[in-house]
Simulated assay, not measured.
Amino acid sequence: MKTIFYNSEGIPYAYTEDTINIYTFEGTPVAYIDIDDIYAFSGAHLGFFEDGYFWDHNGDVLLFTDTTRFGCGPLKPKKSLKPVRALKTRKPLKGTKESKPLKPLKSRHWSMYSPEDLLKIYV
């Protein structure tokens, strides 16, 4: 099942087709999901995936999906149309995982980071 990740403006940013590997619509692999943790392929712990939201280390929402649970997180914006997906590039090898931090309390705020800030620096 394909899951699309939207940013705080409702613009589709990334997707997963296998519920594990996350790609941008340009075809770049940017992260992967391990149970409820999100890691960069370098092994850096980026955040948590719960209730259909990508939560950052501050407990704020970076991205949301269509499966978000009502009552969690900030108000979602109207979603934009999905762009055409480019061909996927090869996934990098997974690095050694960092120790994950304690989960923060969840907020109803959008993250101060943009997806580009958090995800693309680890590609």
Rank of each mutant, 00 (worst) to 15 (best):
T28C: 03
E98Q: 13
H45Y: 08
R90S: 11
Y23F: 15
W110T: 06
G59S: 12
A31C: 13
F25R: 06
D66W: 10
G52W: 07
K79S: 13
P92M: 03
N21W: 01
K94L: 08
F54M: 10
H57R: 15
Y23S: 05
D60E: 12
L93R: 12
P83Y: 02
P12A: 13
A44I: 12
D60V: 00
P101K: 10
E98F: 07
L102D: 13
G59K: 11
E116S: 10
K91W: 01
K78G: 02
K103W: 01
E26V: 02
P115V: 03
G52I: 07
D34Y: 07
P29R: 10
G47Y: 08
G27C: 04
G71M: 02
L105P: 04
W110A: 03
K76T: 03
A44R: 15
P12T: 06
G73E: 00
K94E: 13
T96A: 07
Y15H: 11
S107L: 11
P104R: 05
M112C: 04
L75A: 08
F49M: 08
L62T: 09
F64M: 01
E17K: 04
S42L: 08
S80F: 11
K76A: 02
D66K: 15
P83E: 06
G95E: 06
I35T: 13
R90I: 10
L87N: 11
G43C: 13
L87C: 00
G10M: 02
E98C: 11
P77C: 03
P104G: 05
R90M: 08
K88N: 08
F70A: 13
G47W: 09
G95M: 04
D56R: 08
A14S: 15
K97I: 03
D66Q: 15
D66Y: 13
Y15L: 04
Y39V: 09
V61G: 01
K100L: 09
P92C: 03
A86F: 07
F25I: 09
L102R: 11
L93N: 09
